[in-house]
């Protein structure tokens, strides 16, 4: 039987100004589907990391209290810009335990815009 892993799903309302410095370099589409006044913290496991244009995507699987799982699609920047900030295509590997903050989708869907992440050791990514 699968061990139930404790999860935390925290929704915090924060002011828009406080998230200004960490705007991802999202470029090719409207960002209106994400609520940038809110941050959601996901604790889960990396399923995949798409290092790709026009945007990289982090897929994170989160367990709920009943043992079910939900996969989140988290949108990041282009490899071009991310690589200049220390990100690598190996920064996230399948199976990595991560805590990710994102601006959630307004409609409550399992997705969001990346804000920040820490690894299992509690270190902020990227490590470079």
């Amino acid at each position: 039987m699968n061990r139930i892993i404790s999860i935390s799903l925290i929704v915090a309302a924060v002011s828009a100004s406080s998230v200004l410095p960490i705007q991802p370099a999202v470029s090719h589409h409207s960002f209106a589907m994400f609520d940038r006044t809110k941050e959601v913290t996901l604790v889960g496991t990396v399923k995949s990391f798409e290092w790709t244009n026009p945007h990289s995507w982090l897929q994170v699987v989160v367990r709920d209290a009943r043992g079910g799982t939900k996969e989140y699609s988290i949108e990041m920047g282009s490899p071009n810009t991310m690589s200049r900030s220390g990100w690598r295509k190996t920064t996230f590997k399948p199976g990595d335990r991560v805590t990710v903050k994102m601006n959630p989708m307004r409609d409550g869907a399992a997705g969001g815009a990346f804000v920040s992440a820490v690894n299992a050791e509690g270190k902020t990514l990227p490590l470079n």
Binding site: H28, H29, M33, T52, P54, W57, Q59, E71, M105
Partner: peptide, 22 residues
């Protein structure tokens, strides 16, 4: 390349930007 892996297509009728899963 915007079209390389575009997971945010626009609905041509409503103008809504969709978000695609993997």
């Amino acid at each position: 390349a915007c079209a390389e892996n575009n997971r945010n297509p626009v609905d041509p009728v409503t103008g809504k930007t969709y978000t695609l899963g993997p």
